[in-house]
Write a protein that binds this DNA or RNA. Structure first.
Lengths: 199, 199
DNA sequence: TTACATTTGATAGTTACTGTCAAATGACAC
DNA sequence: GTGTCATTTGACAGTAACTATCAAATGTAA
């Protein structure tokens, strides 16, 4: 008995989604079991029962199998719902929190494990930081629109940079202290940024 | 007639330094002329008149030929000379500025060109951001010592993160606006961070 | 000049990734 | 169902960034 989704999404699309999920699952497992660099794409392809060519059709790089995520759109839509009387930073903070709060307990565990892996593998960390620059640009655009400035305005950019920098610290801390609550950490950190009183 | 340096440093060491400089010079030129990805290590080795094996002895990765720098030690020593009555952020700001001010006009041009290249090549940008995390850790350590806290203290880390984030924004802006004065930009940016009044 | 330590180049791998093409598979009209 | 078309897949042959190894070349120091 097909669900709603299965009715609207074609068999082809369903198979693709399934394959992609399987590949990611096996890849994450292998990376944790024998290490990121020690795991070859060939091995991943083998356990996921696809050819190496197909692997690269789904994921342009080996890194991508871990890094692919979609938080930015979530943040964008959450940000645009924030009341205009909030300060820019409060709006960003709420938007980021909403994106986190939307996740199930299970998702949070996955995210945490993923984060630990990323932070411990230089290649993954570098690629993640690179992605964060896109997020930074996105934040700059959102803020710029809100305060009626250009996204290229240096002040806007600095603001976005500080937010991302704080995020990186929190990610790092969270990877080292897995029991901490990411949402709480992030809220506090961004509040300190607003007051200018870090220490 | 050998100079002071030539007297204290062996022929072997002098040759190595010369080779390394040559390789970097040719690599930078080729990257700018035909692009980073289009330039192979083999090509660089050929024009620098060394074997590819030797290239990798000098530089562990192709990226490294561009990214290798030594600003951190400069910042450390400059930081430790800052009077204790300065705020932590003022001390960091002064230390970073001193590291920049120490450079000759020619150095500044090289740094600027290097920065433009780095920011325009994803691989180089990613690796640079990764390196900046080390700088972030270093700043956290310096600050921690100064205010008598642990380098793992989250507040200290957040502070260091914000500083690095601001730095990234300034680097990005400087790459897009080569005529701007990096030192001035950075000073203003870090001041805004201190007051908490970005916008 | 000799004896030793370090550096270099040649060679043969491995692995992430790219391009191409024919075979397999799903979509859709009938 | 059946045939036709578009999409997806796998096999194959490459490229380029590294890695490991070993003998030849070169600097060092007595």
């Amino acid at each position: 008995m097909p669900t709603d989704e299965e009715r609207t999404i074609s068999l082809r699309e369903r198979k693709k989604a399934k394959t992609m999920a399987m590949v990611q699952k096996h890849a994450l497992r292998l990376f944790r079991e024998i290490g990121y660099n020690a795991t070859t794409v060939e091995q991943i392809a083998e356990v996921a029962e696809i050819s190496p060519s197909t692997f690269f059709r789904y994921f342009p790089t080996k890194e991508d199998v871990i890094l692919r995520d979609n938080y930015d759109p979530l943040i964008i839509s959450a940000f645009e719902e924030q009341p205009l009387d909030l300060s820019p930073l409060a709006a960003v903070r709420n938007a980021m929190l909403l994106a986190v709060k939307d996740m199930s307990e299970e998702d949070l565990i996955t995210v945490r494990e993923r984060n630990q892996l990323i932070m411990s593998v230089p290649e993954l960390r570098a690629a993640t930081l690179n992605n964060l620059m896109q997020t930074m640009d996105m934040i700059a655009e959102l803020i710029a629109k809100r305060v009626g400035r250009s996204p290229n305005d240096l002040d806007v950019r600095i603001f976005a940079g500080a937010i991302i920098g704080v995020n990186i610290s929190v990610m790092q801390h969270h990877a080292e202290h897995p029991d901490s609550d990411f949402a709480v950490l992030l809220t506090e950190a961004l509040s300190k940024l607003e007051s200018g009183q870090f220490l």
